Amino acid sequence: RTWYAVGAHLAVTTNNSPAVASRYLATRGLTTCFAPHIYGRTQDLHLLKPHPHCVQRALGALGATPGASLMIGDTPSDFEAATAAGIAFLGYARNERKAKVLREAGAETVVSSLEPLLGVLRERG
C-alpha cells in the first residue's frame, strides 16, 4: 500500500493462475494496488519462471524499463527471471533456510522484512 500511495507502478508476476493471484490480493484489500497488472501462468507452461515472459509482459504493460525497475521475489526462479529480464532483484525470505536458497541461486540482497524499505518510501512520500 505504501509503494502504491507514493506513486509506484506495481505488478504481480507469478507462476500461479492470474485469477488465483487476483483472489489472494482481493482477500487482503490489495487489488487496487496491482490491478490490472497481474501476470501469471499461460497455457504454454514453457513460459513459467525462470523464463522472463510474465516479467516482460508486466514491464511492457507498465511502460517500465528494466533499468528503472525492481523485482521482489522469494524463489530462485524469481531471481533468474529478473536477471534474464535485466531487472534488479531483491530477495525476500521469511526464514534463514529460504534466504540461503536465494543466496545460493545468486541473489546478492536478501531481506527478511520490507519494513526498512517502507520507511524510506514514507520519508520520500
Score class of each variant (00 low, 15 high):
R1H: 15
T2H: 08
T2A: 09
W3E: 11
W3V: 12
W3M: 15
Y4C: 13
Y4H: 15
G7M: 10
A8F: 15
A8E: 12
H9G: 14
H9A: 14
H9K: 15
T13K: 01
T13W: 01
T14H: 09
T14S: 06
T14F: 03
N15P: 03
N15V: 01
N16H: 15
S17G: 11
S17T: 11
P18M: 06
A19W: 12
A19T: 14
V20W: 14
A21M: 06
S22W: 09
R23I: 15
R23K: 13
R23V: 12
Y24P: 09
Y24D: 14
L25D: 09
L25R: 10
A26G: 09
A26W: 04
R28Q: 15
G29S: 08
G29T: 05
L30M: 13
L30D: 03
T31L: 14
T32P: 11
T32H: 15
C33H: 15
C33K: 06
F34A: 07
F34M: 04
F34R: 06
A35W: 09
P36L: 07
H37P: 03
H37A: 11
H37T: 08
I38C: 05
Y39Q: 03
R41T: 08
T42K: 07
D44E: 08
L45C: 09
L45V: 12
H46G: 12
H46Q: 13
L47P: 02
L47M: 10
L47R: 13
L48N: 07
K49G: 07
P52L: 06
C54F: 10
C54W: 09
V55F: 03
Q56A: 11
Q56F: 06
R57D: 15
G60F: 07
A61W: 00
A61Y: 02
L62G: 07
L62E: 04
G63A: 05
G63H: 10
P66C: 05
G67C: 10
G67Y: 05
A68G: 12
A68F: 09
A68V: 07
G73S: 02
P76M: 03
P76T: 00
D78P: 02
F79R: 01
E80I: 08
A82D: 02
A82G: 04
A82L: 06
A85Q: 05
G86Q: 03
A88S: 14
A88M: 07
F89H: 00
F89Q: 00
F89T: 00
G91N: 00
Y92Q: 04
A93T: 00
A93E: 01
A93P: 04
R94G: 14
R94S: 13
R97F: 10
R97K: 14
K98N: 11
K98A: 15
A99R: 08
V101Y: 04
V101S: 11
L102Y: 04
L102W: 00
L102A: 02
A105K: 02
G106D: 04
G106Q: 00
A107M: 00
A107I: 01
E108D: 11
E108Y: 02
E108N: 12
T109E: 13
V110K: 03
V110Y: 02
V111I: 09
V111L: 12
S112D: 13
S113Y: 01
L114W: 04
E115P: 05
R122T: 15
E123W: 12
G125C: 05
